[in-house]
Simulated scan of single mutants.
Amino acid sequence: MRILLVEDDEMIGSAIVQALNDAAYAVDWVHDGESATGALISKEHDAVLLDLTLPKRDGIDLLRSMRAEKSKAPVIILTARDALADRIAGLDAGADDYLTKPFEISELLARLRAVSRRLGDHHDNAMRCGKLTVNAATHVATYGDTECRLTSREFALMSALVNRPGTVLSRSQLEQKVYPWEGQVESNAIEVLIHGIRKKLGASVIRNIRGVGWLVDKEDNH
């Protein structure tokens, strides 16, 4: 899951990036509203974590522009503004959730999992596809009778595939879900991750369409 973090506080931003990376999210961090405007043009992000008090452009103004331009990316506001009027304004502007600072990282991760469930049309933390199940909270995957714990990047890749069952994702599409902008990506990084997942769960868990990309089947036919 690719996240855009819009936060000008260095200490808070660094802590969030570290926690999200540890939880298998690819995070792109911008420090002001103007940079966020440019970042959102690409429409690469699955969700946005948005501070309200930002240099160059206010967070509420940015959020209203997103919704005016028909952006459907879920937005979780992260702010010190805790007045009822501010919460109402944020939600009315199009936010999906509102979290006041200071907050526990564990709560932020839980809210992101809730967003992920809505994006993938899941009712709990278990993402299911045929005989494959991937738990978003524990990163434990089961395929048939085999169970294993995925690494952070293996989980990020599997999440991208399971959330779009039956859809072939190219190498570049998978890289966008697994690695942030500044990440150094080896040319065979996706193949290495897929090899590791297949070694743990079986060769048939991810199917390759030669010259196109990879997918997990909607229904298991193996």
Rank of each mutant, 00 (worst) to 15 (best):
G59E: 03
G144N: 06
L40D: 07
D28K: 07
L54F: 03
S71P: 00
T79W: 02
K72Q: 12
T37F: 10
S14T: 14
M66A: 13
M66V: 09
A73E: 09
P102M: 14
R128V: 12
Q18D: 11
V17S: 09
V140S: 10
L62Q: 02
I88Q: 09
Q18L: 11
I76N: 05
L62H: 01
K56Q: 09
T142Y: 07
L78M: 15
Y98M: 12
L99T: 05
H45D: 09
P55Y: 04
L62R: 01
D145N: 13
L50A: 07
L109M: 13
S14D: 15
P55Q: 05
D22C: 01
L91C: 00
L54E: 02
L84I: 08
A36H: 01
P74E: 13
H122A: 12
T37A: 11
E44D: 12
A36M: 06
E44F: 10
A15V: 08
A15P: 00
R67L: 03
D58E: 13
H122R: 12
D46L: 00
K72V: 07
V75P: 08
L49F: 07
C129Y: 01
T100M: 10
I41T: 00
V134L: 15
M66S: 11
G130C: 00
R64G: 02
Y98W: 11
R113D: 10
E69V: 08
A26M: 04
H122F: 11
T53H: 06
R64I: 02
A93F: 04
E69D: 14
R111P: 09
A89F: 04
E107V: 10
D51M: 10
D22F: 06
L40R: 06
K43F: 00
A80V: 03
G90I: 02
G38D: 14
